[in-house]
Simulated scan of single mutants.
Amino acid sequence: MIIPSLTLEHSSKTTLPGLREALRALPPMPPALSFADYCALPADQRALYDQARDDFVRLTLRVPTPEQDRSTGILARLIRTNPRRTNSRRGLMISAPLFYGKTELAMLLARSVENDHAKHFPDYADDGHVPVVWVEMTENATGKTLLTQIVRFLAPTAVVARSSNTDALRVEALKLLSVHRTKLLVIDEAHHLRGTEPSSVIKALQNESSATVALVGISLGSGKAFGSGHGMQVTMRCDMVELRKVDVSTKEGMALWTRWVAIFDRNLPLCDHVPGTLTLNAQALHSATHGRLALLAMTIERLVASILDDPNRLDEQVSRDQLFAVLDGLQHTTPLRHRVKLKDLVEAA
């Protein structure tokens, strides 16, 4: 059996090689094996198979969400119409508290833009096109910080002097965005921006570049960066997509949450896996994760890892004990607390 190996060399999405690697890192589900056939593999092949399964869960296994559909439609419209505006171009804001999957959604959007550009320009990379630029803000980042990151993303060998002023950097960033035919500028962790300068810089980018700006961060609409004052100039030019926890008290919410859990359940890359236990415990999973999709995905990832990391396992079936151990551990690595107990979980027959 040939097991493809995924090699990742660039860890940072804030470089062009790193971003393109992240956008393309979608390993397929490995071929299904019985546990007996898995045990019969040589040790090095088992290790490769386990790594391939772990990669699939971490990088590929996802569920569709209403926010994905909405933001994809908004972004497609903005990319189509912004170049036809003479100024006051509109942007997109993706806003949510911690553990709601903001960056994951932004990655999905970036991938869709990159793939669409590749359809129209098959040789785009060789021709120097950079349809997506990704920058990430750190605490108390300034407008100058933002512009510097754009320049370094598009011209990594360029020397940006400490004495460079904001106006000069803005001119250089705008030139590079134009030369490289950038369609989407993602500003991740945008809530770290502070003061009047960043909002003025973003406003200038929207006015002077046809690239659509997507701001991703925590509570952007009501936070310090864009919830008042000069920041409102940016907010009022953006379409807002807010990610919220799923409310299972409604019929629609429960159906959506159960559908997500069932998708994960059906696609677990475990030997002889029989779906059921996860889906039967959809309500408990909602209670443990407070209805947050990113935490549900983290739970699934940790569950699979805990099974694959057990060298003494006799099978790879999901049990309620394994699931509870992961849910209990979740409380120690996230700020969330839950009251789910082992007796609350059920096991598929």
Rank of each mutant, 00 (worst) to 15 (best):
P4C: 09
L8R: 09
K13W: 08
L16T: 09
P17A: 07
A22Y: 10
P27D: 04
P31R: 14
A47P: 02
R53V: 04
D55Y: 04
D55H: 13
V57S: 00
P66M: 03
Q68T: 04
R77N: 09
L78S: 13
R80G: 03
N82Q: 11
P83Q: 06
S88Q: 07
L92I: 05
K102C: 00
A106N: 08
S112W: 06
H120I: 02
P122E: 08
D123N: 13
Y124F: 14
D126M: 04
D127V: 06
D127I: 03
V135I: 15
M137S: 07
T142I: 08
T148W: 02
Q149E: 14
V151M: 06
V151R: 14
L154A: 11
V160F: 13
S164N: 13
A168Q: 15
L169V: 14
A173I: 02
R194N: 02
G195D: 01
G195C: 02
G195T: 01
T196S: 10
P198M: 09
S199H: 07
V201C: 11
L205W: 09
N207Y: 07
E208A: 11
S210H: 06
T212W: 01
A225L: 09
H230A: 13
G231S: 05
D239A: 11
K245I: 01
V248Y: 12
T250M: 08
G253W: 06
G253I: 03
L256E: 13
L256K: 10
D265P: 03
L280M: 15
L285W: 00
R292C: 05
L295E: 01
I300A: 00
V304S: 00
D309Q: 12
N312Y: 11
R313F: 10
D315F: 12
S319R: 12
L327P: 10
D344F: 15
L345K: 13
